[in-house]
């Protein structure tokens, strides 16, 4: 394990504490609109993004707070975006579902399920034709597998031999629809075979397993300039969004998955391995909480964009 194990745990805490605070701020009506929390799935983004390079492109979904933070988007600008402030990473035009950062090759933040996949194919085409070294990593949920865009994109990427790593974060529910109620074939990694593409699967609740799986898959994509489909088995602890009464799943099922909490289990493992003691774990948690406090202060303090600027950024200003 070359990546710093402490860093992996620290980053999972950062996502968890940031999102817990977002949920509180939602209750206070500081954050509005849709808010889709990643709580329970943190090992996926943390393990995956730590296995990538700065040259790689990343696309994610409307449940992308963790991916953005892992990509290096400052928590301050993520939180400001949640508030709708001009200091946000999308200048307040996107909100929770549309975090972007061009300087970090973070391409959002899309709320049309499956719409990132064809764009990932195009980004990989651009890298290939412009002889750039990066690969494109596209995160999406099990729900997207039912979209035509999934099948068209896997076919195109394989047909054109493009370096795309497709990552399914399979949390077993497309909003309220269980995987088995939406897919005739619930082994999602197996779908790659129909497109002559390699695939693999990993435990998305285990950050080291994710890191290893993404490292291996990314290396193959990078070396072979061929796509790969990786399925991560994970689970969302919270509701789909803040408007979800969770009528579609049993409390007992949620509780069972919570025993596999990626943060608690990994903290225990690092303590057991002697990498950290209890105080060390608490220190990571406290640092995450402090960072969140600072981010909220930043978001509160920065100004609103003037309404006079409403029509900016619909088109690119001439001369750019």
């Amino acid at each position: 394990m070359t990546t710093d194990r402490v860093r992996l745990l620290a980053d999972m805490y950062r996502i968890r504490r940031m999102e817990e605070t977002c949920a509180e701020l939602y209750g206070l009506q500081k954050i509005r609109g849709f808010l889709h929390l990643y709580i329970g799935e943190e090992a996926c983004a943390v393990g995956a993004v730590h296995a990538l390079t700065d040259d790689d492109n990343i696309l994610a979904t409307y449940r992308e707070h963790g991916h953005a933070l892992m990509r290096g988007v400052p928590m301050n600008s993520i939180m400001a975006e949640m508030y709708g402030k001009a200091s946000g990473c999308s200048r307040g035009r996107g909100g929770s579902m549309h975090l972007f950062d061009s300087s970090r090759r973070f391409y959002g933040g899309t709320a049309i399920v499956g719409s990132g996949l064809p764009q990932a194919v195009g980004l990989a085409l651009a890298d290939t034709m412009l002889a750039r070294p990066g690969i494109t990593v596209c995160f999406f949920g099990d729900g997207a597998v039912a979209e035509g865009a999934f099948h068209e994109s896997l076919n195109l990427a394989s047909l054109w031999r493009l370096p795309v790593l497709f990552v399914i974060e399979n949390n077993l529910y497309a909003m309220g629809t269980a995987l088995s109620r939406a897919q005739a074939q619930t082994d999602l990694a197996s779908k790659a075979a129909g497109y002559a593409m390699t695939s693999s699967a990993a435990d998305g609740m285990d950050v080291e397993a994710v890191h290893a799986a993404v490292s291996e898959a990314a290396a193959a994509v990078r070396a072979g300039r061929r796509p790969h489909l990786l399925e991560l088995h994970t689970y969302r602890f919270r509701a789909h969004s803040m408007f979800d009464a969770e009528l579609y799943r049993d409390r007992a099922e949620v509780d069972e998955w919570k025993k596999r909490d990626p943060i608690a289990t990994y903290a225990a493992r690092l303590v057991a391995d002697g990498v950290l003691d209890k105080a060390g774990v608490d220190g990571l948690d406290r640092a995450a909480r402090d960072e969140v406090t600072g981010a909220v202060e930043f978001a509160e303090a920065t100004p609103w964009e003037p309404v006079a600027d409403l029509l900016t950024d619909v088109h690119t200003p001439r001369g750019m």
């Binding site: 307040g92 035009r93 996107g94 972007f100 950062d101 391409y107 900016t312 950024d313 088109h315």
Partner: peptide, 8 residues
């Protein structure tokens, strides 16, 4: 372009 605050 708009959704990204003018970045793309």
């Amino acid at each position: 372009r708009h959704m990204s605050g003018g970045q793309f």
